[in-house]
Nucleic acid binder design. Structure first.
Lengths: 190, 190
DNA sequence: GCATTAAGTGGAGATTGTCTCCGTTTGATA
DNA sequence: TATCAAACGGAGACAATCTCCACTTAATGC
């Protein structure tokens, strides 16, 4: 890769990161201006807005994933803290939430997305092997909840509700309800 | 309302319902062509794509909601069957999923959305009063999961994963884990 | 150094989808 | 059947995305 190409690419990513961090809503072409390059250059490096967002966050997401997979804690703890940590990270980076949809939908060729799902699947498998979560839970179901968190950013109480959703999910993952659901046997006549 | 206005409005809704049912991805202006009216007429009746989608689905969603609230079954059963039923309905109407985002984000002036959330809140309150779900669960957290289901439509195993997500949610709502989460006390050394 | 050239650049303008505006038509009312 | 406010239609303004290609520049060989 030629030196000027790399320089431009990095300038674009840096400009995009700055804009995302302030949660600015920019037209795609504006990222080119911000980086001081032409739109042609922008499009050559990043064919879509999602590709750009991925370049900005891929590193961080993958780092989170690797930290979790390398964790020496029990599988249950690793899974719990990964999910809570991921949600905290998303809450702190609204722009990531706005593109999480694409990180989560695997059809796009974005490494961060499949990496996220792979990590969750691995942590769940380990936790299930330890018996601390049910062994019939689908990683995809967890992805769907994360997706919901990412795309609910415009709700008034987004952070609180997101954390609540994760807690419900973690509870639901517990090993004690292979049958369960809402405990209808307790139904009183009220 | 003038007769021709009503006729046009109904023609637009009918055309939109037909297009949605086939999950066609139309430009907004095309709904006007399909209904045989001008774009001006389309925009006067439905300022946004979401308003149109709401007109198509509001009735059905509100009907689902009212049926659930009128249910004479125990609150736990009503909540369970409402959530499962709603997901089934969404799975059967992909186009609804695509606009669920807006039905779920309350800033938009769409009656169906707040109606959905109000229904969930009410069913949850009743179930909590009966003691069949925890009383500290936020309706918003449930909305987030529904939102996730709606916006995960492009995932390969969307239906299965969506149902799995609802089951996890229902399990998590159960009354037995006021503390809980993943049961770390069971952690073995493995 | 200096030519060669493939890789890279920039931005004008094509394209596409959304939305507005206003001259014309039509249904309701008396 | 005259009146007029309500409703209509669609040309075209507008906004965002994306392509294309004439020009520039870094790398390579001599």
């Amino acid at each position: 890769m030629r030196a000027d190409a790399r320089r431009n690419r990095e300038a674009i990513v840096a400009a995009a990161r700055a804009a995302f961090d302030r949660d600015e809503q920019l037209r795609f072409d504006d990222f080119a201006d911000r980086a001081g390059v032409g739109v042609g250059t922008l499009y050559r490096h990043f064919p879509t807005r999602e590709a750009l967002a991925a370049a900005v966050y891929q590193g961080e997401v993958i780092a989170l994933c690797e930290r979790a997979r390398a964790s020496t804690r029990s599988a249950g703890e690793a899974l719990e803290s990964f999910l809570r940590g991921f949600v905290d990270y998303v809450l702190a980076h609204a722009a990531l939430a706005r593109v999480l949809a694409d990180l989560v939908t695997p059809d796009v060729q974005v490494t961060g997305g499949s990496e996220l799902e792979r990590t969750i699947a691995e942590l769940m498998a380990r936790a299930a092997a330890e018996g601390v979560i049910r062994d019939d839970a689908l990683p995809g179901a967890v992805m769907i909840v994360l997706h919901g968190i990412g795309s609910s950013i415009d709700r008034p109480h987004w952070p609180r509700e997101s954390r609540a959703a994760i807690e419900l999910l973690l509870d639901g993952l517990g090993p004690d309800h292979r049958d369960g659901e809402v405990d209808s046997s307790r139904t009183s006549g009220t």
